[in-house]
Design a protein around this nucleic acid. Structure first.
Lengths: 213, 213
DNA sequence: CTGGATCCCTCACGATACTG
DNA sequence: CAGTATCGTGAGGGATCCAG
């Protein structure tokens, strides 16, 4: 807004003005999963300084991407959520995540995986054409993050937390990236101990066909 | 790359590491139109300091997005072009430009429009479903930028420069955004003198139906 | 305890000048 | 033409502090 960085009358330049600042798209990523409070955002983005988070939220609000919502009393707390306009970034964020995942190497020592990041990763790698008429459910544990995935007749639903009646529980670590990229075969991953299953092993094949980098 | 800004093992965070720096996506935008030399890039992005352009090109090269290519003698000059991986940003850049264009206001006093920006804008607003079986050609003059557009049986081709046998020459200014967003009707635009035509006026209707923010 | 604001330091960015 | 060198400024990083 204020800062006219680029001096170009161009949709892309304007978009980058709105969401091109340093943490902005990661904030949008987390808000695409669900509305959140300041502290929730901070927890999902541990390395962001609070002043920067505060500044980004104000900028995104001013840009019409995020809405600040005060919950009714007695709670009275503040929730940030995407506007309709902000929600329309979903396809872009998913596509960019897919693009970036293709050159994602091994995780660094202090890299973390958050539930929201994993949820968006599953959404971005989902291949509807491979999931046609398919129904399956998975509980996915990566490090200490637990999410679950339901594929219901070709529709996808991903959310945080476990799933007691999951068809398959997949317990793994960073190897999940190699697995989903096809760099590591399911059998190999199990044999190496990089993936542990609770449930029928052939479901893992369907999993890697459904979610693919 | 070097700077681990985000500390997250996530495709999106990695993508933002690669192309999230301050001028990076605009450089990519211009390279999506055609390979360019350092000075050409500088001319299309007048406000970028040369050291920053230099740094971005090195980073993008290191990221595998841009390739530095030395032309054969006696020319011996250097050309920057997108790698295959870089080219795969096209849909994302187009989508982001479309998203940003929706909230693009009036141009600032010192905003410029470059040929490359306009070419990408035409590509991003093209609606194939509206251009089915259509054949048309336009020369488009916005300020002192001249490009031409061919719609050939549903296929789009946009490039810099005039087109002597264009079906319609459209001469306009910033009003083109309002026109393409449907905020300004074609007749109104002509009546106001915000658009001048050389050729049949009804082609302008087809133009605004084919290219739409 | 949530939701920030403040302070200080560093480094990336921006402007300009200059060189092979 | 294709950058490198220099230098000032402001945004980001990190820790701490404060109000409701």
């Amino acid at each position: 807004m204020a800062r006219r960085y680029y001096g170009q009358y161009c949709g892309l330049a304007h978009a980058v003005d709105l969401v091109g600042e340093r943490w902005a798209l990661l904030i949008v990523r987390d808000l695409l999963v669900s509305p959140k409070r300041f502290t929730d955002l901070k927890r999902g983005l541990p390395r962001i300084p609070t002043n920067v988070l505060s500044a980004r939220l104000k900028e995104l609000e001013g840009a019409g991407v995020v809405r600040r919502h005060v919950l009714p009393r007695p709670d009275g707390s503040v929730v940030y959520e995407l506007t309709d306009y902000g929600n329309e970034l979903e396809d872009i964020v998913l596509a960019l995540g897919r693009w970036g995942a293709r050159t994602l190497g091994e995780p660094g020592a202090d890299d973390i995986v958050t539930a929201d990041a994993l949820i968006m990763a599953m959404r971005s790698t989902f291949r509807p054409e491979a999931a046609r008429d398919m129904t399956a459910s998975y509980e996915l544990r990566v490090g200490d993050v637990v999410i679950h995935v339901r594929v219901d007749d070709g529709d996808l639903e991903v959310a945080e937390g476990g799933l007691p009646d999951a068809g398959l529980v997949i317990e793994t670590g960073p190897a999940i990236k190699a697995l989903m990229a096809g760099e590591l075969g399911p059998e190999q991953a199990i044999a190496d101990g990089q993936v542990a299953l609770t449930g029928p092993a052939d479901l893992l094949h369907r999993f890697v066909q459904t979610f693919r980098i």
